[in-house]
Design a protein around this nucleic acid. Structure first.
Lengths: 351, 351
DNA sequence: CTTCAAATCTGTAACGATACAGTTGTGATG
DNA sequence: CATCACAACTGTATCGTTACAGATTTGAAG
């Protein structure tokens, strides 16, 4: 046998999915040549590349992920790391949709890697690092000093955070501008004549807690309103807990006349507490709420909502991880989405 | 060199993740022996197995997924196939949570494979089949004659459906008993003195359309109520479309006094339409709605809801695909979740 | 007619795991 | 003391891909 064609396949299995070997056989080229032709390497002739590409397309060649992964370590996987607990109000759905919309145009697959917040948030990160399970990671619920960010940075695995950190590490992120949300919320409430305001805040250990508080307090100063203290519960508590704590507050002498709710589901509980205290939303009290979905606007149009578009967040996050993987500088992969008040649902027919 | 130890590794890279080779080196055994010891093969000595297992555990060995996948074709992946469009009301979140809860105890990863319903629902299935991307598939929104089920069955790829089919193929499924839901809904409404009932139904091409209709009609017969025709919209239409169509109906002479809503978000739109027609829920009209989340119960306690626990559905689906992969007969992997009316939210303090 | 560089193509080895077909050693059997 | 069954272990080839180090051809320069 000619040594030049020593490694050429003799027979090919019928009906199996095509590999480089298949194309090598069909074009009469070597496997290496085919591989390099498909990656547009400079040492392959233009006409050869064309031929290879044509055949590859014809037979529907798609590189075997396991082969690539074994040889190169490239997984073509983006891992979305989630707490099982945070997902109750359904933030995941639009997020997953947004991410997959972007990944659809790439070779990346989305793998969901959950963890129980009760346990160690670092566990899934370690797993991914130790097993090389992904090329990039998306994490959320960031803390000012987030050990996950430290670890990922140290080990050089590309990632993006939903939320910022404060640890002097420049990394890709997407965030909702919670400072401005709270600030604008206060402005709106004061414009309605409200002066005693309360904030249903995020849990204190998360970064956006201080953002939201800062915006709230800046608003109070700029628009001259007072804060009513309400630290008994936060948006991570159960709806029943929030409701009951808020009922107590609303029955007290210190009852607020304006509410800023840091979450859409929290708003539901606040409304319930308020009504149990025999107050009426829109009369005794106004409310501005962050809202990732539509139901508040439909069912409680008297609540003023600022929409947090989680789907767009998902798209931004996906673009940012991929950018990071592709070596773009982290400072170019940071974005902040600006809150805007939602218009009321159109009330007329044929809206 | 001794031929018996010809393939033994001489040196091992520092700090790299352990492989079978590492264990082989440390135990002084051959790679094959280590591999077989870890799978508890019958031709390996008990003491050897014990030693290998101990070392593997010590150094934190985890099989390289790419290696396994390349050699055996086993991907250890379950693919959740979703329409981008259906996800608006957030059914995905609890579903993903439920699935991952089950997968956490297994070697399986969850990969989300989206498709645009506008295009071909078969496309993602074909992709998975052609590229061998998963060991099992979870699909939803089944039709009576579902080409995806036909294709997956024909090609022998394990799967489970969220929803049933009617094509004479016995396959794993999990479903919500929509027939009973509608039947019980009618019973409840009639018990409240309602006699002119309307159904906001699923889109006609999906299997559970006929289930829900059948239950509705059986209820009408058994409890002697009348149907008000309302086929202008279904739960897949936009909230605005549903609202406007329903307002027209409520203003007509034929206005119903009882509503059965096949979806929680649809219920929102119905309420809006009803109120635009100057009717009052709980007085002019009662409503029973299916609901995958809590917000209706909180915000509109006058709506009677039957909870569809999507998280549990996710768990059932995950268990069923894995069972199918493991070769359990399909007929043992079918389950139906029974609707139950939800109790009202407790109104007292310290509930 | 060498020589040599550039252009184009190629074989081999390796990634980590496993199927398969051995090999070795032990002790029982005749 | 052969023979043989059996237990315990092992080497080789392979999955599909790519890095690397050649190999071959061509044509221009000397």
């Amino acid at each position: 046998m000619d040594s030049k064609t020593k490694n050429r396949p003799q027979t090919l299995p019928e009906g199996a999915r095509p590999t480089l070997k298949t194309i090598a056989f069909m074009t009469g080229l070597g496997i290496t040549t085919v591989s390099r032709a498909l990656k547009d390497a400079p040492d392959i002739g233009a006409e050869t590349k064309e031929r290879v590409r044509l055949v590859a397309k014809q037979i529907g060649y798609q590189p075997n992920r396991a082969g690539v992964r074994l040889r190169t370590g490239k997984t073509n996987v983006i891992s979305l790391v989630l707490t099982l607990e945070e997902e109750i109000m359904g933030i995941t759905s639009p997020m997953v949709v947004g991410i997959t919309e972007i990944l659809a145009g790439t070779p990346y697959h989305l793998v969901v890697t959950p963890y129980s917040a009760v346990k160690d948030a670092l566990a899934p990160i370690r797993y991914i690092l130790d097993t090389g399970a992904a090329d990039g990671v998306i994490i959320s619920r960031t803390e000012p000093h987030d050990p996950r960010v430290a670890l990922l940075t140290e080990r050089g695995l590309p990632f993006v955070t939903h939320g910022r950190t404060e640890m002097g590490i420049v990394h890709p992120y997407h965030d909702f501008d919670n400072e401005r949300f709270a600030y604008e919320a206060v402005r709106k409430l004061v414009a309605r004549g409200r002066r005693k305001l309360v904030l249903l805040e995020p849990p204190p250990h998360l970064t956006f807690y201080s953002h939201m508080r800062a915006g709230f307090e800046r608003g109070l100063r700029d628009f001259q309103a007072d804060a009513v203290s309400f630290h008994q519960t936060n948006i991570d508590h159960s709806l029943v807990e929030i409701r009951d704590a808020f009922e107590v507050l609303m029955r007290s002498a210190d009852a607020p006349d304006g509410i800023v709710s840091g979450s859409g589901s929290g708003a539901i509980a606040l409304i319930a507490g308020l009504e149990m205290a025999k107050k009426k939303l829109g009369e005794d009290c106004d409310m501005v709420s962050k809202s990732p979905s539509d139901f508040l606007r439909w069912l409680r149009p008297e609540v003023m909502t600022m929409y947090e578009d989680i789907r767009i967040a998902g798209r931004e996050l996906a673009k940012a991880v991929i950018g990071h993987i592709d070596g773009q500088p982290p400072e170019t992969l940071q974005s902040l989405s600006q809150p805007e008040f939602q218009p009321p649902i159109t009330r007329g027919l044929r809206a």
